[in-house]
Computed example of a mutant assay.
Amino acid sequence: MGFTQGIFRTLALISLSVVTLTAAADSSVWKVSSGDNLLYVGGTLHVLRQKDYPLPVEFDRAYQAADTLIFETDIAQLHRPAVMQKMQQAMRYPEGISGLDKRVSAALYQRIVKVWSQYGLPVEALSGLRPSGIVITLTLLNLRQIGVDAQGIDDFYHSRATAEGKPVAGLESVDQQIRLLAGMGAGDEEKFMRMSLDELEESGRVINEMVDAWRRGSLVDLERLVIDDMRRESPAAFRVLMVDRNQKWLPQIETMLHSRPVEFVLVGSAHLAGKEGLIHQLQQRGYRVEPVQN
């Protein structure tokens, strides 16, 4: 899910021995063990197409074995009108603060206006929107245009767990997620908007590559597709959006491992990839981590 490249890959998600293991895993679900205790960690894509269903069978195996499902945040709250309104407000600059037209070059702003209009959106609606608000709006419309028309994995399993009475919880608050999303591109608006618009033009290819890497359980390819550019081009954003969040989640996962209920932790696939990712970090802490085979 890189952010400095645009939000597209993030929404659709974000040691050599570990790389070798995960490259050949053929699974995006891992079993993590500590003595007799265990939990499952699944890498998700936040958006999918109807043709991407049914999901790989290892997801259902982990779901059936789990007592509780853990998501990045409280998904039910995200759909509440008050939270949606709060999100919309966070995507706008405060009254009296200069808008995006004063933060990017005139040429880039004209490009933004052109793309915005091509999606049938009124130009006046651009006024006051932060980069995150513009990119999220364009991304959602673009995804619909290229046929991304199905629930993401997180929503799918949250709906199923709710319907079946299985407990759910989140690793971070909705307010934390809103702040992260709203702040995308702040301080580097020119690069963020330019690369986001470039990425929209490649969306069909990108979604195909990401779904393929996810279905194969290839953290190597997910690192290449999502992590590498963000790590290289915007290390500060990479630390805030990926590394710091992983480090905050790890103690929570370790606490779960010391309890008897079995959890199924579902987070964006990018959070599992690379040496900063959850899979490598859990192995570094001495836990046994093995792919759940299909």
Rank of each mutant, 00 (worst) to 15 (best):
Leu241Tyr: 11
Met242Gln: 09
Glu254Tyr: 04
Lys248Asp: 15
Asp244Phe: 02
Pro251Met: 04
Gly217Asp: 04
Arg245Leu: 05
Ile253Gly: 00
Asp229Val: 11
Asp221Ser: 13
Leu250Trp: 00
Gln247Met: 15
Glu233Phe: 08
Asp244Lys: 06
Pro251Lys: 02
Arg205Pro: 01
Ile253Lys: 02
Arg232Lys: 09
Pro251Gln: 01
Asp229Cys: 09
Glu254Ile: 10
Val211His: 13
Glu209Asp: 13
Leu222Asn: 06
Leu225Ala: 04
Arg231Asn: 05
Arg216Lys: 14
Ser234Phe: 09
Arg232Glu: 07
Met242Arg: 03
Ala236Phe: 10
Arg231Pro: 02
Arg205Asn: 07
Ile253Pro: 00
Phe238Lys: 00
Leu250Gln: 01
Ile227Trp: 04
Val211Ile: 13
Glu233Pro: 03
Arg215Lys: 10
Glu223Tyr: 11
Ile207Tyr: 02
Lys248Cys: 08
Asp228Trp: 07
Gln252Tyr: 04
Phe238Tyr: 15
Arg216Thr: 11
Asp229Ala: 14
Glu223Ala: 04
Leu241Lys: 02
Glu223Cys: 01
Arg216Phe: 06
Trp214Gly: 01
Arg231Ala: 08
Arg239Ile: 11
Val243Glu: 13
Glu254Val: 10
Met210Gly: 05
Ala237Trp: 12
Val243Tyr: 06
Ile227His: 05
Trp214Pro: 01
Asp229Thr: 11
Leu222Pro: 05
Arg224Ala: 13
Arg245His: 03
Ser234Pro: 06
Pro235Arg: 00
Arg245Val: 04
Glu254Phe: 04
Glu254Gly: 02
Ile227Ala: 06
Leu225Met: 05
Gln247Val: 09
Asp228Met: 12
Val211Ser: 07
Arg231Gln: 12
Trp249Asp: 05
Val240Ala: 15
Asp229Lys: 12
Arg231Ser: 06
Val211Gln: 13
Val220Asn: 07
Arg215Phe: 02
Lys248Ile: 12
Asn246Trp: 00
Leu219His: 00
Gln247Trp: 08
Leu222Gln: 11
Leu241Ser: 09
Arg205Lys: 11
Asp228Tyr: 09
Val211Ala: 14
Trp249Leu: 08
Asp229Gly: 12
Val226Met: 15
Lys248Arg: 15
Glu223Ser: 04
Leu222Trp: 03
Asp229Pro: 03
Arg245Met: 05
Ala213Glu: 03
Leu250Asp: 03
Arg239His: 10
Arg231Met: 07
Val206Pro: 05
Val226Phe: 05
Asn208Val: 06
Ser234Met: 14
Arg239Leu: 11
Val220Cys: 08
Ile207Ala: 02
Met230His: 07
Pro251Thr: 03
Arg239Lys: 14
Ile227Asn: 10
Val206Leu: 14
Ile207Lys: 01
Asp212Glu: 14
Trp249Glu: 05
Lys248Ser: 14
Asp221Lys: 14
Val240Met: 15
Glu209Ser: 08
Ala213Thr: 09
Asn246Arg: 00
Gln252Glu: 14
Val226Pro: 00
Val220Tyr: 13
Ala213Ser: 07
Arg216Gly: 07
Leu225Ser: 02
Leu241Gln: 09
Ile207Arg: 02
Asp221Glu: 14
Asn208Gln: 15
Arg224Asn: 11
Phe238Ala: 00
Arg245Ile: 04
Val226Gly: 03
Leu241Arg: 04
Val220His: 12
Glu223Phe: 06
Asn246Tyr: 00
Gln252Asp: 05
Val220Gly: 12
Asn208Pro: 05
Met242His: 11
Arg245Ser: 03
Ile207Glu: 03
Pro235Gly: 00
Ile227Met: 12
Met210Thr: 10
Met230Lys: 01
Val220Leu: 13
Asp244Val: 06
Glu209Asn: 10
Arg231Ile: 04
